[in-house]
């Protein structure tokens, strides 16, 4: 059981590495924020699995904090990018 949890945690870390490609390539800022959001969720999953595998459930408190705060940065991004997005953003987007 713990082996499976550790294996899945490793698998999720690999998906985070794959997500890094989108951060690198993502044409617009929204894509990058999106992958940061995915990292937050996958981070919660990894923390839950690690907590179960190492039988210490206080890692779940860290997961709780992640879950609570994953929205704050994204809302900061959204409030920054209100309609005043520059034209440069448009050219950026045709790349996708």
């Amino acid at each position: 059981m713990t082996e499976l949890c550790l294996g899945l945690a490793l698998f999720l870390l690999v998906t985070i590495v794959l997500g890094l490609i989108r951060i690198r390539r993502g044409p617009s800022d929204a894509d990058r924020m999106l992958s940061a959001q995915l990292f937050g969720t996958t981070g919660v999953a990894i923390l839950l699995l690690l907590g179960q595998a190492t039988d210490r459930t206080f890692w779940w408190d860290v997961a709780l904090v992640f879950a609570l705060l994953s929205a704050v940065t994204a809302i900061a991004f959204v409030s920054r990018n209100e309609p005043s997005e520059t034209a440069q953003q448009q050219r950026d987007d045709h790349g996708s």
Partner: peptide, 18 residues
């Protein structure tokens, strides 16, 4: 992009402390 990468860095740093 630098700021977003830094935010992702901070997220995964918490995993390192775990």
């Amino acid at each position: 992009r630098a700021v977003i990468l830094f935010i992702a860095f901070n997220l995964l740093l918490a995993l390192a402390w775990v």
